[in-house]
Design a protein around this nucleic acid. Structure first.
Lengths: 234, 234
DNA sequence: TCCTAACTGCGTATGGCGTACGCATCGAGC
DNA sequence: GCTCGATGCGTACGCCATACGCAGTTAGGA
């Protein structure tokens, strides 16, 4: 039955039998994945090459392929390991879902490259499913149907991923790139072509916040909407 | 004043003067960008190489660099051109914002690679600002402050981008990859380790929808939340 | 005890990629 | 007709993933 699983999944779920023959391995999958995550965290996914990874591990590039089928498989292993354990949930669905969303956002900010790897299929890795399970458990005891729970969780996931993607992958995590943005923008935005945008800029409330609360405000709106659905069913 | 703009922006906003000297250009920026978008649409961003692009245009790879500084600049030009014109908005903020969100979603589904290019800074391209302007104009006449309008629009943007990213970039647009997913999943998900997930699966309402309405349902929840904010201020 | 077979590490080589550099050619302005 | 900037592009370089095969190591079976 487990023979129909691809090799990658067998390894992830610990279904792979291993013989003890041969020399003591100097490399291990765990060491490789940990080092790869370190590189991707610090220098970005583009800086992660098999050569650089091998260099950091003190081995030759081709040695990695004894433990990893190819770079894509390595990315799957990294994606599975990066999120770690989901958070402990407080009582109440709303506080729980907010906790889940903030914890997931923290994962994406710690490991922005996770948002750049493509799985090509729905998640089957244990690291992904644990988070999915944790998110679903939020709705235990609520009047939502199974379908509605799934939809509410996916809406939250979409929002969190979108926010993290825009603020880490799209814009980069360097606030240096934003210096001079206001000047460039006002040099391009005319009141005739961009009336609403010009009004936003001239209101002075655009980008002037000490801390970006857009995530909090948007998440609160989404949770309000889910709460409204729940209250109509009680 | 316009001299402080980087070359890329000057070209995009039509601020670049061009001399008429020299031979008739066989290539043009528009042709290059259009062909690049075609390749990225059909075969994905990974399949877009300068060599392949030149081949499609019937020229040599290095000829492209007379019109484009490098591949990153080409991606910026593509990103600016891909969205096209924003939609015409119906009356009413809610219908307008929903129209804007659906139109944006359609853009991301037509050009999934847009979600994979990194700008590194907030948007300054005219093609991006037009959509931003259109989105902001939705809130004209509502009681929301400028900051609240910005936050509501960004929340919608996050949701749309997140949904599109998960369903095109992360999962791929090939539904073939989903066949056998349910079998693999139920082979891995045990009721002990994944109680909520197991209940969702056994409810039979997981992935059984003829058409995925998760986007519509989630968007409705978010709009409900924005509506609630608005009604408290009236 | 020794053989054998599995397993590890890795050197070499190939094909693709982005692109720096420089040369030949073209054609409008003087 | 000369000039000078613009265009097209051939060559070359360094980086990338990785196919292939060889050599060294070690536990289990004879």
């Amino acid at each position: 039955m487990t023979s129909e699983f691809p090799r990658t999944l067998k390894v992830l779920w610990g279904l792979e039998g291993r013989s003890t023959r041969g020399p003591q391995p100097a490399l291990s999958l765990d060491r490789i994945v940990a080092a790869a995550i370190e590189i991707a965290d610090r220098d970005g996914l583009a800086a992660l090459s098999m050569a650089r990874l091998a260099e950091r591990l003190g081995s030759a590039p081709m040695s990695l392929y004894r433990h990893v089928a190819n770079k894509d498989e390595l990315l799957v292993f990294m994606q599975d390991a990066a999120p770690g354990e989901p958070p402990a949930l407080p009582p109440g669905w709303r506080a729980s879902l907010e906790t889940w969303a903030r914890a997931l956002q923290a994962v994406y900010f710690r490991h922005p490259w996770v948002l750049q790897v493509s799985a090509g299929r729905p998640p089957l890795e244990p690291g992904q499913l644990i988070w999915f399970e944790c998110g679903l458990s939020v709705f235990a005891g609520t009047p939502l149907t199974q379908r509605e729970r799934y939809q509410a969780l996916m809406a939250t996931l979409y929002f969190v991923r979108g926010q993290a993607h825009v603020n880490t992958v799209l814009l980069g995590d360097t606030p240096d790139a934003v210096v001079g943005y206001g000047e460039l923008l006002s040099g391009l935005v005319t009141r005739e072509r961009f009336p609403a945008l010009a009004e936003l800029i001239s209101s002075g409330e655009f980008g002037r916040e000490e801390e970006d609360v857009t995530f909090d405000v948007g998440l609160a709106r989404l949770l309000d909407g889910i709460d409204l659905l729940m209250s109509t069913k009680r």
